[in-house]
Design a protein around this nucleic acid. Sequence first.
RNA 1: GUCCCCAUCGUCUAGCCGGCCUAGGACACCGCGCUUUCAAUGCGGCAACACGGGUUCGAAUCCCGUUGGGGACGCCA
Length: 509
Amino acid sequence: MTAPAASDNPVRVRFAPSPTGFIHMGNVRTALFNWLFAGHHNGVFILRIEDTDTERSKTKFEKQLLEDLRWLGLDWNEGIGRNGDFGPYRQSDRYPIYHRYARQLLEEDKAFRCFCSEEELEKVRRAQLERNETPRYCGKCRYLTPAEIETRLKAGTPCTLRLRVRPGGVGFSDLVFGRIDIDTIQISDPVLLRSDNSPTYNFCCVIDDFLMKITHVIRGDGHLSNTHRQILIYEALGAPIPQFAHLSTILGPDGEKLSKRHGATSVEEFKRQGYLPEALVNYLALLGWSPPNEGQEIMSLDEITGQFDLSRVLKSPAIFDNSKLDWMNRTYINKTPDSSLADRAGQFFVDSGLIPAQIDAATHSWLARIIGLVKTRVDHLEQLPGEAAVVYGYATDPPEIDAAALEILSSSDGQAVAREFARLVEGKQSLTPETYREIVAQVKAVTNQKGRGLFHPIRAALTGRGSGPELEKLIPLYEEGSSLNLPRKVMSCRERLRAVLARISHKVS
RNA sequence: GUCCCCAUCGUCUAGCCGGCCUAGGACACCGCGCUUUCAAUGCGGCAACACGGGUUCGAAUCCCGUUGGGGACGCCA
């Protein structure tokens, strides 16, 4: 890993999730855009963990998060697990820092102690709401005299630390939303330190971004209204204000916020279903962003990085469309070499009990060829073993035959072809594409069938299905599969024909 | 309730510093071709500027309003 080229003002961005749950696609998109922006500007991508909510933060979520990001190929060059000059990178490890700045703000009178209890505040809030007023902090403790403060402190009254919000306007130019100005009257004096002395999100976030020299804050648009509050904190700290870019929300198919009931929303769910990370990431990049040379949608991370630009990011929310993701995933599956797919999808076959956990080269190449034959018909890797049933089928007794095949084999012409074909196969040691072609020619001569009438019964008898991959490619897989040592038996062509003929003669006569 | 934001085919979007737009591409859907079958693939089709006012010779593009949607207003992040 080479360090990015040092320049006067290197771009430094960060992804700062809270480990309070499994990471969903909206967060992944935020991480991705940060990663792309850093990459494009040859900057630094930092991973910071915001776990000031000790109730909900869990280390298992943090672990999963790191794994997910790595799987997606969104590695970071500074932060958790990587170190760097601005650590620690987990907020729960930074409390002394926050307290130092809290003390500073208090001393400078830019913050003040508030002795109002939560119940009191809640009461005021409800009353304001009832009167149809904007609920906001009443400012009761803003101007307590030193003596008043002293007595409350002595009495042990719990207090929070609040920022003393200045009158006037605050605004910023968001890189995607544009200029947003408001009056500070809209903002209540935000709590910096809770009554248990723990720092709040807005406070930590600003201090960290300041100390970590973050140049661009790219995050979800839920933070749009936090930004003004945070700018006021930057001001109080005398810290430079970074650039902001807010990303619109990703919605479910029904236009509602993405949630569990929309099916797969977390990275590990997509991974479990056999989506390729490159497809996922490519799809996500196109949600709210489009390349300048529109028309090319299938792009590698490198290509996207080269073209990425926040000015082309849309403000309006996007709906997550599974069918387009599936299309993209299919495209990537079909681009990937079969042997590499065998590596990536191997586990799905193991889990389905079709191949052993450890396989030899012969089995691997056999598996790769099966995948090559059926991969055009799956959306994601998890469906592969199901499609491989064309090869594994017939292991049941009686053999499974679909309606279309049964129909074909129930006609006397169809049966004649199948019988003649089976008879000739019996005379061969094993079936190869060459001997297969010879036999087909003979069957054709004997039965006088051709085209559909000839090939359909043969397919039906050999595969038990009315349709499927090319027979000439399937046949060697049957023959080779029957000699491999597999947890579930694959029948040779001859065995298949015997089984199916036994079944149909039983059924018809 | 107050404040802020958003609005092009069913979906993702191009276009938006006005004329090249009878609005382009992709997904999905439908049809045709290729193929012994299916899948893949090739070709074609359907389908949108939320509404109402302005400004202008001219508006998807600029302004105002309406409607619809989202967010914020926490000792959550």
